[in-house]
Amino acid sequence: MTCVRSVTQWYRDPISCLQSTLATLLLEAGHDPLEVLGLSWEFRYHPGDVRPEEYYWPCRRPGDLAGSLLPLHDVTSRWRAIDRADPLGEWRDALAGGRLPVVAVDNYHLPFRPAYHDVHAAHLLVVYDVDETAGTVSVSDAMPPDFAGPLPAEVLLRSCAAAGVDDEQDVFFSGPVTSGGRWLDVRLPATIPALDPGRLGLVLDANAAAFAAPSEQAWTGADGLRRYCAQTDTAATPELLAEAYTFGWGMQAQASLHGELLRALGARWDRPALAEAGRRVEQVAHRWTAVRVTAAHGRDDPAACAGPLRDHLGRLQRAYQEAHTALGRAAADLR
């Protein structure tokens, strides 16, 4: 049964397959990916929760990956186990219902991924067609080298089943704690209210309030950021340093998209303070580069990277503060 013949891809260099797959779903539903993916901005870290997956995100709603990434929209999602008796059936039914399945895969088995037959790494793809007659499943991957097209169903299913393999070549995105044989069933709203200065102002106020609030179990906001940086600095084990690369990708990607959105809206609405705030948020994203890369390269010798890492963690916190100061000015200007 053929359901969708093609999909549109969307990519920015700071994002991961988490954002790129959801962007394709948003485009199919007629929504602007940047306006949706870039609206929320938070700091959130769940101690002990970081899994070696490219698409790791600290979920405020357990098990709801898309809803946790997009808390300001009426989006929900749940992981479903692939039915071994009829592995394509649920995807076929989801497609018939107008939903694009997002499947968790191991890049090692995918001929179009650079890691093919080399490195095990947990990744996400969008399924947009199931052709049971031909025995193929069409998938979309916007991450370079981008790919969209049919795969033999057995290849995709092998890749799905294998997710969760440990591989010392990729300590960031492979490991036994990732679970294979599952797909993400995402429900998007039919309509999303258009962004206007009034609505954006409310969002910025809410983001700011959350950043200022004290954190508890989940390390959130400025307080959570301070605790995260202190932990990464003082207990810089190889595991925590590797985790910084994985965890930081989500924080970096969201900051980058939020910043880009605010800059774009600032230009569109001729609100210079908003554009400047967007640029400050982008600087937070770029500060994450130094933290992530310093930690990743330093994981084999934590003592050697301790000085630069401490410096970058301090600058990261200052960048958040500068961004929130600028966001406060922008929010006031929108009222």
């Binding site: 260099d13 700071p14 980058s256 600087q283 994203a285 770029h286 580069t289 130094a290 992530r292 890369v293």
Partner: peptide, 8 residues
Amino acid sequence: AGERRVED
């Protein structure tokens, strides 16, 4: 060139 975007 940057290993990701760099501002410093």
